[in-house]
Amino acid sequence: MSAEGKNFEAITKAKAQHNKSCPFPPHTVRMHPYEIERMQWEEGDTIAGLLLEADPKLGTGAFRLICDGMEPPELELEETDVITAPAEPIYVPVGPAREDERTFDPLDPRG
């Protein structure tokens, strides 16, 4: 069996084992770039139903399956403006004040 066939078989077995033990199915297989080149695969290929990604942190001869339980997908967050309350009360006049009327102050205990 060729190296490519052996790797494909190992990835298929690892995927089946992963599916038995994790509720999140794998979506990506990561391998060292040298291994991808040696298999004559290319990053972005689909291997055993998984997206192939290069990861130079992995050692040669190894691969890693990735699922949403390990690396949740990025959520698109909507930015919103925050409106804060003013530091001091705002007084809104309800009409022009007459000179003979006292103005109402809600913070004045006399009313």
Rank of each mutant, 00 (worst) to 15 (best):
P26N: 11
M70P: 01
R38G: 02
G61E: 07
F8V: 03
D81I: 11
P93R: 07
L51S: 11
Y34S: 15
H32K: 07
G61Q: 05
T28R: 12
F8H: 12
P72D: 03
A14F: 08
I83P: 01
I11M: 08
H18D: 15
E53F: 04
A10C: 04
E43P: 08
E9L: 03
K6G: 08
F104L: 12
R30G: 07
R38Y: 11
D108T: 08
R64I: 03
P23T: 08
R38T: 02
N7S: 15
I66S: 02
I66K: 08
Y91H: 08
L50E: 04
G61K: 03
F8N: 10
H32E: 13
R98H: 07
E71I: 15
M31R: 10
L107Q: 15
E101T: 05
H32Q: 13
A85S: 08
P86T: 04
P106S: 09
Y91T: 05
L58R: 05
P93C: 12
F8K: 09
H18E: 09
V94A: 14
E42K: 13
A10Y: 02
E79K: 09
D105H: 12
A3G: 13
K57G: 06
E9N: 01
S2E: 14
K20N: 14
F104G: 11
L77H: 04
L51D: 00
A16G: 11
A85R: 12
L65W: 01
A14S: 14
L51M: 02
G5H: 10
I83K: 14
P86G: 03
P33F: 00
P86K: 13
Y34C: 05
E71L: 12
R98I: 01
E37A: 15
H27N: 11
K6E: 15
A3Y: 12
E37N: 15
V94P: 07
V92K: 09
G95T: 04
P96H: 15
P56C: 00
G44D: 08
C67F: 11
T84H: 11
D105F: 02
F63M: 06
F24M: 04
P56G: 06
P89K: 09
A3R: 14
L75G: 05
R98V: 10
L52I: 00
T103K: 10
Y91D: 11
M39I: 04
G49I: 01
